[in-house]
């Protein structure tokens, strides 16, 4: 269920750009993010709302400013569930191939 939100939030280039911007420099204000986005402030706010809802962005109030931080914890969960599993499969295939090929060499 949480994964659905994460994937949905990631399924948009503008939202991915916001994550990239925060990865480059964490703790930006809305204004600082808007300066890099080619869209209305209101749209940026909506995208950030979806990212916050998916827990990919967290905010901290500092004085009158609200700072936005990249929160990669849900990405880690997806990595564990959807990437590492398949990576290991691929690595074990490579390992088998290597063993097989090297085994052939020994026989020559």
């Amino acid at each position: 269920m949480d994964d659905d939100k994460t994937f949905k939030a990631l399924g948009d280039p503008s939202r991915r750009k916001i994550l990239d911007l925060l990865c480059e420099k964490n703790g930006r204000t809305l204004g600082q993010l808007c300066a890099h986005m080619d869209m209305k402030r209101q749209s940026v706010t909506q995208h950030i709302g979806l990212l916050e809802d998916a827990n990919l962005v967290s905010t901290v109030k500092r004085g009158r400013e609200k700072l936005h931080f990249l929160n990669p914890v849900p990405l880690q969960t997806i990595y564990e569930r959807w990437i590492r599993k398949f990576e290991q499969q691929r690595l074990s295939l490579l390992h088998e191939l290597k063993t097989e090929l090297e085994g052939d060499q020994d026989e020559q």
Binding site: N26, G27, N55, S58, V60, F69, N71, P72, V73
Partner: peptide, 10 residues
């Protein structure tokens, strides 16, 4: 100085 904020719901 830099800051990181991590959030998880458990």
């Amino acid at each position: 100085k830099t800051t990181f904020v991590y959030v998880t719901y458990i």
